[in-house]
Simulated assay, not measured.
Amino acid sequence: MSNKPIIVFEGIEGSGKSHHISVVSKYLKKKRINHIKIREPGGNSNSEKIRKLILNNKSNFNKNTDLLLYMAARSENIDVIKKSFNKKIILIDRFTDSTIAYQYYGMGVDLNLIETLNKSLLKNIKVGFTFLNIVNQKNLQKRLKQRKALNRYDKFKMSFYNKVQNGFIKLSKKQKNKYQLINSNLEIDKNEKLILKKIDKLIK
């Protein structure tokens, strides 16, 4: 693996992934290590416009439209990723496995379609390592209630989030050496230390 890998933070809503990617980014800045941090959907200005459309509470897309909008947002980010690939550490809040977990395991979109689109967009770009944040139903509900505003993806039934999280776990088992599960039900500072310790090993 390159010492300037793509490191992805995955997990369902309320799992702490966005918190941890911010902690890692601050850690790398403190150490003056060159990196970029993006999110999906989102990233560059065009992708952020698509993000607003996807997550808008008034949006009511069918599952295939949702998939294509996510892929459109990824397409807008690919040039950003290509410019930094193997040159800088790339931190991404959600990436290709999120698409499979949400759109295939959660919504039942055709897996071959998802994989074909991902291959077409990514080509030789590969994820180096993934942190998968796992959260139980009690903490998920508690954390969603604490949010000031909920987007469309914060309002699904618990059965949907269970399917998605189980999908993530299945994906992690297929590539154990490139995945680390983070139990987000534990104290947050313990997980921060655990993640930063692994980050140090990944970027040596």
Results as ranks from 00 to 15, higher is better:
residue 83 K to C: 00
residue 82 K to V: 05
residue 94 R to M: 10
residue 93 D to E: 11
residue 84 S to Q: 11
residue 79 D to M: 12
residue 81 I to W: 04
residue 77 N to G: 05
residue 75 S to Y: 15
residue 101 A to D: 00
residue 98 S to M: 12
residue 89 I to W: 02
residue 74 R to N: 08
residue 89 I to D: 06
residue 84 S to Y: 12
residue 81 I to K: 08
residue 93 D to H: 10
residue 76 E to R: 09
residue 80 V to F: 12
residue 101 A to F: 01
residue 87 K to W: 09
residue 94 R to W: 07
residue 86 N to R: 14
residue 83 K to A: 11
residue 79 D to H: 13
residue 97 D to Y: 08
residue 98 S to H: 12
residue 80 V to Q: 09
residue 73 A to E: 01
residue 88 K to N: 15
residue 91 L to M: 05
residue 102 Y to W: 10
residue 90 I to E: 02
residue 83 K to E: 13
residue 81 I to Y: 07
residue 96 T to D: 13
residue 101 A to C: 00
residue 81 I to S: 04
residue 98 S to V: 10
residue 96 T to E: 11
residue 103 Q to I: 01
residue 95 F to P: 00
residue 82 K to Q: 10
residue 85 F to N: 07
residue 101 A to K: 01
residue 83 K to S: 13
residue 92 I to E: 08
residue 89 I to L: 07
residue 79 D to T: 14
residue 82 K to S: 10
residue 84 S to K: 14
residue 87 K to V: 10
residue 90 I to S: 03
residue 100 I to K: 13
residue 103 Q to A: 08
residue 100 I to V: 14
residue 96 T to C: 07
residue 89 I to K: 05
residue 103 Q to V: 04
residue 100 I to M: 13
residue 84 S to E: 14
residue 97 D to M: 00
residue 102 Y to R: 07
residue 99 T to Y: 02
residue 86 N to F: 12
residue 74 R to A: 06
residue 96 T to I: 13
residue 100 I to E: 07
residue 97 D to W: 01
residue 103 Q to R: 06
residue 81 I to N: 05
residue 81 I to T: 06
residue 82 K to L: 11
residue 93 D to G: 12
residue 100 I to H: 01
residue 102 Y to C: 05
residue 89 I to P: 04
residue 79 D to C: 11
residue 76 E to W: 11
residue 99 T to C: 03
residue 94 R to D: 09
residue 82 K to H: 03
residue 87 K to Q: 14
residue 91 L to P: 01
residue 102 Y to F: 14
residue 96 T to A: 14
residue 86 N to C: 10
residue 95 F to L: 13
residue 76 E to Q: 15
residue 73 A to C: 05
residue 82 K to I: 04
residue 97 D to V: 01
residue 82 K to F: 05
residue 98 S to L: 12
residue 91 L to H: 03
residue 89 I to C: 09
residue 90 I to A: 02
residue 82 K to C: 03
residue 86 N to D: 15
residue 82 K to D: 01
residue 101 A to H: 03
residue 96 T to M: 02
residue 88 K to S: 12
residue 102 Y to L: 00
residue 99 T to G: 05
residue 79 D to G: 14
residue 94 R to V: 13
residue 99 T to R: 01
residue 90 I to W: 04
residue 80 V to K: 11
residue 89 I to E: 05
residue 99 T to Q: 06
residue 85 F to C: 11
residue 83 K to L: 09
residue 76 E to M: 14
residue 77 N to K: 05
residue 80 V to R: 06
residue 97 D to P: 01
residue 76 E to D: 15
residue 96 T to S: 15
residue 79 D to I: 15
residue 75 S to C: 14
residue 91 L to K: 02
residue 77 N to E: 13
residue 94 R to S: 09
residue 92 I to T: 02
residue 91 L to W: 03
residue 83 K to M: 07
residue 91 L to C: 10
residue 85 F to R: 04
residue 77 N to P: 08
residue 93 D to V: 12
residue 84 S to G: 08
residue 102 Y to Q: 04
residue 80 V to A: 04
residue 93 D to C: 12
residue 76 E to K: 13
residue 74 R to G: 06
residue 97 D to T: 01
residue 75 S to K: 15
residue 92 I to N: 07
residue 94 R to A: 06
residue 103 Q to T: 01
residue 103 Q to K: 06
residue 102 Y to D: 07
residue 87 K to G: 09
residue 91 L to G: 06
residue 98 S to K: 09
residue 101 A to P: 00
residue 91 L to V: 02
residue 91 L to R: 03
residue 85 F to S: 11
residue 87 K to I: 00
residue 85 F to M: 08
residue 78 I to S: 02
residue 98 S to G: 14
residue 100 I to T: 13
